[in-house]
């Protein structure tokens, strides 16, 4: 590899020598105008004239045609973007107003719904309360009546207890003494012993 590289460089320098030798031949033995072309004053007037003509024409076409057109295009685009942004801003504002009114309506509706629910709840609670009170009153009345009946029955039963006691006493005394006492005697004795 290194060998190849070396040969290459040798070749290159050889080529270099060949090239310079080659180029120098026409240079030295060339015609009178082998002067370095950019410094050849003979061509200056022509170059200056044609530069003036072409550059002048170029400047004219740029300043009168091309640049106003490109500038106009850029201006139009800027205007269009600005107006589009303004339009978008306007639409956004409208949207915001719509959202605000929607939210207000929603809040009102919610409030109204809450009111209705509360009123219904209150009304139902009132009705339930009234029914409960009526039922309780009814129940109390029934309870009272029942208690009254119980106490009546109890009294009657107690009264019957006296009668039964009399009869039982009568029967006991009769079987013990062989002779029944009078009712008045028995009841007097019974009530005396019971009280």
């Amino acid at each position: 590899m290194a060998q190849a590289q070396e040969t290459q460089t040798n070749e290159t320098s050889a080529g270099h020598g060949a090239t310079t030798a080659h180029t120098e031949v026409p240079h030295d033995g060339g015609h009178a105008q082998t002067m370095f072309p950019p410094f050849n004053g003979e061509t200056f007037p022509s170059q200056l004239l044609w530069l003036a003509i072409t550059f002048g024409a170029f400047y004219y076409m740029m300043s009168k045609m091309a640049l106003p057109r490109i500038g106009g295009i850029l201006e139009d685009r800027r205007d269009r973007i600005a107006s589009d942004i303004a339009e978008a801003g306007r639409l956004k504002q409208e949207t915001e107003v719509a959202i605000a009114s929607y939210e207000q309506a929603l809040a009102e509706a919610r409030q109204k719904a809450g009111g209705i629910a509360q009123a219904t709840r209150d009304k139902l609670a009132g009705e339930t309360e009234a029914k409960r009170a009526a039922v309780e009153k009814d129940l109390n009345a029934k309870l009272e009546e029942a208690e009254k009946r119980i106490s009546g029955i109890k009294e009657a039963a107690l009264a019957d207890v006296g009668e039964i006691a009399n009869e039982a006493t009568n029967a006991l005394v009769e079987s013990l003494l062989g002779k029944a006492p009078t009712k008045t005697e028995t009841s007097k004795a019974v009530s005396a012993s019971m009280s």
Partner: peptide
């Protein structure tokens, strides 16, 4: 004075023409 239209002039014209035509 020599004001010949040269290869330099030709390329000046070409430069101007190509640029202008392209932009337009």
């Amino acid at each position: 004075v020599d004001f010949s239209f040269t290869n330099s002039s030709l390329f000046m014209v070409a430069t101007v023409a190509v640029t202008t035509v392209f932009l337009m």
